[in-house]
Design a protein around this nucleic acid. Structure first.
Lengths: 152, 152
DNA sequence: ATAACTGCAAACAATTTGCATCCTT
DNA sequence: AAGGATGCAAATTGTTTGCAGTTAT
């Protein structure tokens, strides 16, 4: 059988195919990178490019961008906006029904992640009251991390 | 006397001065625009530029950007990142102690705002548990708005 | 007087796009 | 075979910066 014989990664490729997109080595490779990424890590297009280079699988920047965009539009990746000049992407683990959120230090730029079920449910509740159908909620808490609070 | 004789806008100019920044016609004008903006509206640099043009107060784009950045760094403005390619700014109404948040329709792009005290307090609580000193919390709920839910 | 500010144009950084070629289906 | 995908380089978009001239203090 069945469910367990197919990894989420492979199921995904099938889905891609069904939607009329092609399975190319580049797309598989990029998907693999996100699947092997420790949970909570997120990559910018440039980060991705560096990893690819390290692994000697050169994929053009243009293709990286196109793939990130495609996967995000399919909700395979979650697109994150920090207060930076570029976007970050991470695997969308929405099967869990709840996404992790970020805390960002305005001093050193460190990002820490956390998960809060209550938060997520509250967001869903607020959305439904407004007649919205929520697909994702992103919370960013800005402030000073423990280390930076001590410095002058 | 006193408190009510001075608008928040003017107090702000004084503060600017005290921090060693100068009060220029450009800065006053930009500040005015944000003060007259209906609560909940937010502007990108380009939006701002258009408004300025309409009012025949031409301020160079460079100055607009510099001013937005300055005012944001002073927490006069709140910098918002939607999943777009540019930033938005709105007046920081933190005197209220609580910021409004945004709900964004992924279909039509409409943004709706809402306020939730519980949310804000919960965020502050989460932050403090992690040893963070929270200065702002931004929540974005993505989904489908009532209108777009009905369409195919 | 002087240091901060502005405008302009050039510089940058992130991302997108046109097009010829290549590869999956 | 045929249309989608890739790579390259050129083009765009949003934002920043150097510099000379201007202005608030």
């Amino acid at each position: 059988m069945t469910l367990s014989t197919m990894t989420s990664r492979d199921e995904l490729l099938v889905t891609l195919r069904q939607k009329g997109f092609r399975i190319t080595p580049q797309r598989e490779k990029i998907l693999d990178i996100f699947y092997t990424l420790p949970e909570g890590e997120h990559l910018s297009a440039e980060n991705l490019q560096n990893i690819l280079r390290q692994e000697h699988s050169d994929i053009s920047l243009a293709t990286s961008y196109r793939t990130l965009k495609l996967l995000a539009s399919l909700s395979v990746l979650r697109e994150l906006d920090f207060t930076e000049d570029h976007k970050h992407y991470e695997l969308n683990r929405s099967e869990a029904g709840i996404q992790h959120q970020h805390m960002i230090c305005m001093e050193c730029g460190a990002t820490e992640e956390f998960t809060s079920v209550d938060f997520y449910n509250a967001a869903r509740h607020i959305a439904s009251e407004a007649g919205f159908e929520m697909t994702d909620a992103q919370l960013k808490i800005y402030g000073l991390c423990p280390q930076c609070r001590l410095k002058p």
